[in-house]
Amino acid sequence: SKDAAQYVYDEAQKGVTQVTVNGVTFKFDNWQKLLKYAQKLLN
């Protein structure tokens, strides 16, 4: 959902490398990768 994507995006902006959405945890090597993933979700 857009809300989940926005949440992931906001978390990535904080510099975190993992985020949990609806009980599913996504882990990334660095926050830039998390940010890229979030941007994909938002598009």
Rank of each mutant, 00 (worst) to 15 (best):
T25D: 07
D10Y: 07
L34M: 01
Y37L: 13
A12N: 08
A12F: 13
L41A: 01
V19Y: 02
Q39G: 03
K14P: 10
K33N: 11
N43L: 10
D29G: 12
W31G: 00
S1M: 11
Q6K: 06
K40M: 13
N43M: 11
T20F: 08
Y9I: 10
K14M: 09
D3G: 02
S1N: 13
A4H: 09
T20P: 03
A12I: 13
Q32G: 06
T17Q: 06
F28G: 01
K40A: 09
A38Q: 00
D29V: 13
N22T: 09
V19C: 15
F26T: 07
N30F: 15
V16R: 04
D10M: 14
L35T: 01
N43Q: 09
K40D: 06
A5Y: 08
T17A: 06
Y9F: 11
A4S: 09
A38N: 00
V19E: 01
Q6D: 13
A38S: 01
K14Q: 07
L42G: 01
V21S: 09
T20C: 15
D29P: 12
T20Y: 03
T25M: 11
K14D: 11
L41S: 00
Q39Y: 11
V8I: 08
D29M: 10
K2I: 13
G15Q: 06
Q18G: 08
Q32L: 09
A38T: 03
V21K: 10
G23C: 14
V21T: 10
G23W: 13
N43D: 03
L42N: 01
K2N: 12
D29L: 14
S1V: 12
Q32N: 06
E11P: 10
Y37H: 04
F26Y: 09
K36T: 05
Y9E: 10
L35P: 00
Q13I: 12
K14G: 14
G15F: 11
D29K: 07
L41M: 02
K36I: 09
L35Y: 02
L35Q: 01
Q13S: 08
E11Y: 09
K2V: 14
D29Q: 12
V16Q: 07
Q39F: 11
D10R: 00
E11Q: 08
A38I: 14
F28L: 12
N30E: 07
K40Y: 07
Q18W: 11
T20M: 06
Y9W: 14
Y37P: 00
T17R: 01
K33H: 09
K33M: 07
A5G: 07
V16T: 04
A38E: 00
V24L: 12
Y9C: 14
Q13R: 04
K2Y: 03
Y9A: 09
K36E: 15
V19N: 02
K2C: 15
Q39H: 03
D29A: 10
V16F: 10
V21N: 07
K27T: 05
D3L: 06
Q18L: 11
S1E: 08
A4D: 13
A12D: 07
N43I: 06
V21R: 01
A38L: 15
S1Q: 07
Y9M: 07
S1Y: 13
Q18H: 08
W31E: 01
Q39P: 00
K27V: 15
F26D: 02
T25S: 07
A12R: 03
V24D: 01
L34Y: 02
A5C: 15
A12S: 04
V16A: 06
V24C: 15
S1T: 13
A12Y: 06
V16D: 02
L41F: 04
L34I: 02
N30V: 10
Q18R: 02
Q18N: 08
G23A: 14
W31A: 00
S1G: 12
K2T: 12
K2G: 14
W31Y: 06
D3T: 02
L34K: 00
A5I: 06
T25I: 10
K36D: 12
K2W: 13
V19H: 04
L41H: 01
W31M: 05
T25R: 05
F26C: 15
K40Q: 05
K2A: 09
Q32M: 05
Y37A: 01
L34W: 02
D29T: 07
K36N: 08
N22G: 07
K14R: 06
N30D: 12
K27H: 11
L34G: 00
G23S: 04
V24R: 02
V19L: 12
D10K: 03
Q6R: 02
G15R: 04
T17K: 02
A4M: 04
A12P: 08
K14A: 13
Y9D: 12
L41V: 04
S1L: 13
N43Y: 04
E11F: 14
L42V: 02
K36Y: 08
N43A: 04
V8G: 10
K40H: 07
L34F: 02
S1F: 13
Q13D: 12
N43F: 10
K27S: 15
V8R: 04
K14C: 15
V16K: 04
A5W: 14
K2D: 14
Y7R: 05
V8C: 15
Q32K: 09
K33L: 09
Y7C: 15
V8W: 14
D29F: 14
D3Q: 04
Q39R: 03
Y7E: 15
K40L: 06
A4N: 07
Y37T: 05
K33I: 08
G23M: 12
K33W: 06
Y37W: 11
A5F: 13
N22Y: 15
T20I: 10
Q39V: 06
V8H: 04
K33C: 10
N22L: 10
L35C: 12
A38F: 13
K27F: 15
K14E: 09
W31F: 07
F28Q: 03
K40W: 10
L41Y: 02
A4I: 08
Q32I: 13
K2R: 05
Q18D: 04
A12G: 06
Q32R: 04
A4V: 05
F28N: 02
Y7V: 10
S1K: 09
Y9H: 07
G23R: 06
K40I: 08
G15D: 02
K27R: 12
A5V: 05
N43G: 03
K40E: 09
F26V: 04
F26M: 09
D3R: 01
